[in-house]
Amino acid sequence: MFFLKIILNLLSLIISVVIKIRNLFFDYRLIKIQKSKIPVISVGNLNIGGTGKTPHVIFLIKLFVDEKNISVISRGYGRIGNKTKKVILKKFNHIEVGDEPLEIKSNFINSKLEVYVSNFRYEGVKLIENEKKCDLIILDDGFQHRYLHRDINILLTLYDKPFYDDRLFPVGKLRENRSYVKRSDIVIVTNCPNNLEKRKRKIIKSNILKYSTSPIFFTSVKYLGFFDKKNKKINNINREKKYLIITGIANPNYIYEYLKKIGLNFEKINYKDHYNFKISDIKEILSLSKKFDYIITSEKDWFRLKHFNKFFNNFDKFLRLKIEIKFTDENQKIYFHSIISKLLSK
């Protein structure tokens, strides 16, 4: 164990040096940074794994969709191929564009929002600029993608695992050293409890301000309830029934805690984040489902599971748990909007 610790620390040191050199190349423009004609907001994080980037992108879109024509660029994690594409719900599935772009697009079917997948984000930008319909671009998971200039850098960090209590990979789960929080224009502490104490808020702010003087906001998850395959809300969830929870997300514990809180009797199967289900998995799920009254999955997982619709045609047990992001204090909403507007006007 002692020698393993030494090896991990050495690897972490080497990675730290490589990251520092890379960032210096960007800082001194030894690597070219492309700039869009359209304002760009990036939403990202320092750590490996989930901090709620996609739900926060959706949250950001909802704040501005009525006043701006927005386009989102995502890498489309987990998809096959790297071609830049515009996401069309009826044309593409998660294998072609990834699950998160589909989730974003499906939340704004009746709006002008466009979603693109592009490994090289500037290719996505050029496609958007050529269409001449957009006045705001949002990057999903763009904090480390420094090849593209952004007008606003929003950094997310988890309430129960903030970056200042973590270390660089492989010792910890950070993709970059804590010091690079200085690139952020706004910091959002995510997955906070609804009744976040002022004392705790003050401690968190104090720790973040050691690394950045950016404005700090706090958000929590609001559970919108359960929806069936036809997107119809189930108003009365039966607590006497048995539920099987299927997830393939970075941190499903928040879902488990919510289901316990509302008194559901459930068992769980968790796959790795962005897991691409195989036919054998689907057959196993269908076999297991015989012991349960319903299967519950997250919205993101549903876009991977629905690829196997032919197996679920006569299967009405599926429920999707929908969420949205909210500020822990609604007074923050006006302040947040004003800061975004001010930064975009520079």
Rank of each mutant, 00 (worst) to 15 (best):
D141R: 00
G76Y: 01
S206L: 07
K306V: 09
L321D: 09
C192I: 08
D281A: 02
L209N: 15
G225F: 01
L127S: 06
K333P: 07
N253W: 00
K85M: 04
L319C: 05
I249C: 09
Y180K: 14
E240H: 01
S338W: 00
S106Q: 07
G81T: 05
I249K: 07
I73D: 09
I249M: 02
F217Y: 15
Y254L: 06
Y275Q: 13
L209K: 15
N231V: 07
K182W: 00
E330Q: 14
Y116L: 08
Q332M: 12
I234W: 00
K5N: 11
K290G: 14
I334H: 10
I296K: 12
N130L: 03
L4F: 14
S179D: 09
V117E: 00
K242R: 11
D135L: 06
E197T: 14
N153A: 05
Y223I: 08
N270A: 13
H149F: 05
N238A: 09
E330A: 12
D27I: 12
I41N: 03
I80W: 01
K242E: 07
S118H: 01
D99Q: 00
R150G: 02
I246P: 04
V72L: 13
N119G: 08
K91H: 06
K300R: 05
L148R: 06
F108M: 12
F318C: 13
S179R: 14
K291R: 11
I334G: 06
G44Y: 01
E67F: 10
F308R: 09
K241H: 05
E96I: 06
R304D: 04
D301L: 02
L4T: 15
E103L: 15
L30A: 07
L102E: 07
L155Y: 04
Y147D: 14
K317L: 05
Y254C: 00
H56K: 13
L174M: 11
L11A: 11
K62V: 05
L136I: 10
K198E: 08
F308M: 12
N331H: 09
Y164C: 13
K232A: 12
N23T: 03
N265H: 05
F3S: 13
V40Y: 00
G263H: 06
L264W: 06
L319R: 11
I340D: 01
E131M: 03
I14M: 11
G49C: 05
I137S: 11
R22M: 01
H94Y: 13
Y275F: 11
T328W: 02
N93H: 07
S111I: 02
N238F: 04
G172H: 04
E100A: 13
F120V: 14
L63R: 15
S111Y: 01
N207M: 15
I216R: 15
S341A: 04
D165I: 11
Y258I: 03
E284Y: 03
I340S: 01
S214F: 00
N231A: 10
C134A: 04
T84C: 14
N45E: 14
K200F: 01
I61K: 11
K233D: 14
I255Q: 07
I70L: 08
N93Y: 02
S184R: 08
Q144V: 06
L136Y: 03
K261A: 02
V43F: 02
L30C: 05
Y28S: 15
L158K: 11
